[in-house]
Design a protein around this nucleic acid. Structure first.
Length: 573
DNA sequence: GCCGTTTTCGGCCCGACTGTTTTCAGTCG
């Protein structure tokens, strides 16, 4: 059982306890344990009781629950809770604006226990009969349901990656000699994936049976000699295709897509008297194969440089491949530091030194500590005095730590009127200031754009953090004129962030690409809230690659002094 | 349910915002 599976059960227990109205601190304990397990670098299922209890926030009871789960596959306590509330109720909690109290009320008063039932209740006007509910709340819930429907069947890229890793482990165990390759939107690094496509190169037909017997398969949609298709728990469709070795490259190319990229490639093939399909590239006249065992061979035969999967969106990559002007895409190894993280001074879980050590272990040369400012009161946000005291502490630790340098920064809240949440003379004394929107998300575009532009006017703001504010599959981006924001960033010499949090990935690929074109420097940050968070950098790098970014476009690929010189505060003075 | 040079009980983060309300409950981050 992998860490994510364990964390999911602990998280569900927390959700169910919340609906039940249990002791909030108990709920927090389960939720914290879920985070700890998910973030842990080691396989939690392999730990014994002492090992489990050594993890922060895991004591006697939680260790016992985890052991029960990994040894039997179930937790009795979890099952008992599920007997009280249908599992579909947990979907209600994922709706924007619906929390545990509302979910419990809906269930007790109206027997609403699923999204479908909620929609019926809302449409028939029954919701407004409940205490604390009115027409506006009803409309908000209908809107949240609509947004939810748009996202149905899609999953976060890292979740898809984890699912693929577990499925591949299952397949490899059954057939160690076969090469398995995940393709589709996962290979292109799209921020959300609809389904999971896997190729088995030269695999035996019996693999299809192995595939359909995977333990998380809920339903077999189809099974033939060369293709199997299943529904996996959590609403994923997964397809496995058996591919002969001669067609390895062609199948990779074909099933990686995107559809638009493939259509353009096939057009190009036809124009050259060739035919491209999932089996190979063939001479139209003779029917003889021209290429097919490698992707490189196919692109080459079409007169193109190899196009990295992340660029295959038909956004100019074929023309660039023809001219030989494809970017040399940034890689994870180019990143030298992380400029956004939180500590236990605000809503992070670990202290400055622990975060610094973890960043060093992740291969970083420097780390900016950027805790929240006072407006985020629930996170214990820092006021001016505490921010400066915190900075002193960061600098003191920096002076005595080996192997990593620390920058004393802040993630300064952008208030609803666009003013930064901390006084300018405080911001001026820090090494780095990220400014971010965390509230009043519903402002209209004119208001929101004016607000962000006003914050960018402050000369001590170096980086705009998670600019769109989106939460993937959950919350739309704020209404913001990104072209004007990018233009302002170019004018001020400030940087825009690509936030690597798995549900943010913000900026997105298109906006990051526009920023690059306009000459705006980017930074790729993890926004880590614990020592386990630094591994998320790879997802931000994936966005950057999809945005055509090269190492030179990203400030935190530079050595520390180069980075400092590239910050707005040091450019302007 | 966890934790402990405030240690085996009693703490454990809390303000803004929204929609429903005449003083507050629920959600969000």
């Amino acid at each position: 059982m992998d860490n994510h599976a364990i964390a999911r059960v602990l998280g569900e227990i927390a959700d169910l306890l919340e609906i039940k109205g249990e002791n909030p601190f108990k709920i927090r304990a389960y939720r914290a344990a879920a985070d700890t397990v998910a973030d842990s670098g080691q396989a939690v299922a392999a730990l014994d009781e002492a090992g489990l209890r050594a993890l922060p926030g895991i004591g006697k009871d939680l260790a016992a629950r985890i052991l029960e789960l990994t040894s039997t596959g179930l937790v009795l306590y979890h099952q008992e809770l599920l007997a009280q509330f249908p599992v579909t109720m947990l979907d209600l909690l994922r709706l924007q604006g619906v929390g545990p109290k509302t979910a419990a009320l809906l269930y007790r008063s109206l027997q609403v226990a699923s999204l479908d039932e909620l929609e019926q209740a809302a449409r028939s006007g029954r919701l407004r009969s409940l205490k604390g509910m009115g027409p506006r709340k009803e409309a908000l819930i209908l809107k949240a349901l609509e947004e939810r429907r748009q996202h149905a069947g899609r999953h976060l890229l890292p979740d898809t990656h984890d699912l693929a890793a577990a499925l591949l482990a299952h397949l490899r165990e059954a057939s160690p000699g076969t090469e398995f390759i995940p393709v589709g939107s996962l290979r292109r690094g799209v921020d959300t994936c609809g389904d999971l496509d896997v190729l088995a190169i030269g695999g035996e037909p019996s693999l299809i049976e192995t595939f359909t017997r995977y333990r998380l398969v809920e339903r077999v949609l189809g099974r033939g000699d060369t293709k199997g298709s299943v529904l996996i728990r959590g609403g994923y469709q997964a397809d496995l295709r058996l591919v002969p070795p001669d067609s390895r490259g062609a199948a990779m190319q074909y099933f990686t897509g995107s559809k638009a990229h493939n259509i353009a490639l096939r057009d190009r093939a036809i124009a050259r008297g060739l035919k491209l399909n999932e089996y190979g590239l063939f001479d139209l006249a003779t029917g003889l194969p021209v290429a097919g065992d490698t992707e490189e061979g196919i692109y080459q035969a079409l007169g193109l440089a190899f196009v990295p999967p992340e660029l295959r969106e038909h956004r100019g990559e074929i023309e660039a491949a023809e001219r030989g002007t494809l970017p040399r895409l940034i890689e994870r190894a180019d990143i030298r530091g992380d400029l956004h993280c939180h500590t236990d001074a605000t809503d992070g879980r670990d202290g400055i030194e622990a975060m610094a050590a973890a960043a060093r272990d992740a291969g970083h040369e420097y780390l900016a500590i950027t805790d929240h400012s006072q407006a985020l009161a629930m996170s214990g946000g820092l006021d001016e005095a505490r921010a400066l005291e915190h900075a002193r502490r960061v600098r003191a630790i920096d002076a005595r730590m080996d192997g990593i340098r620390l920058l004393a920064g802040i993630e300064c809240d952008i208030r609803a009127d666009g003013t930064p949440d901390l006084a300018a003379d405080c911001l001026a004394q820090l090494d780095l200031v990220i400014a971010s929107v965390h509230s009043a998300f519903h402002q209209d575009e004119a208001q929101m754009t004016a607000r962000v532009l006003r914050a960018m006017d402050c000369p001590w703001v170096d980086v705009l953090g998670h600019p769109s504010g989106r939460l993937l599959l959950k919350r739309q981006a704020v209404a913001l004129d990104m072209a004007r924001v990018i233009a302002a960033a170019a004018e001020h010499g400030m940087a825009l962030e690509i936030n690597s949090q798995v549900d943010r990935l913000d900026l997105n690929d298109m906006h990051a690409r526009l920023a690059r074109v306009r000459g705006v420097p980017l930074v790729i940050d993890t926004d880590s809230h614990s020592t386990g968070g630094f591994g998320m950098m790879r997802w931000g790098v994936t966005v950057a690659r999809r945005a055509w970014l090269e190492a030179g476009d990203v400030l935190n690929t530079r050595p520390l002094e180069g980075l400092r010189a590239g910050l707005r505060r040091n450019r302007n003075t």
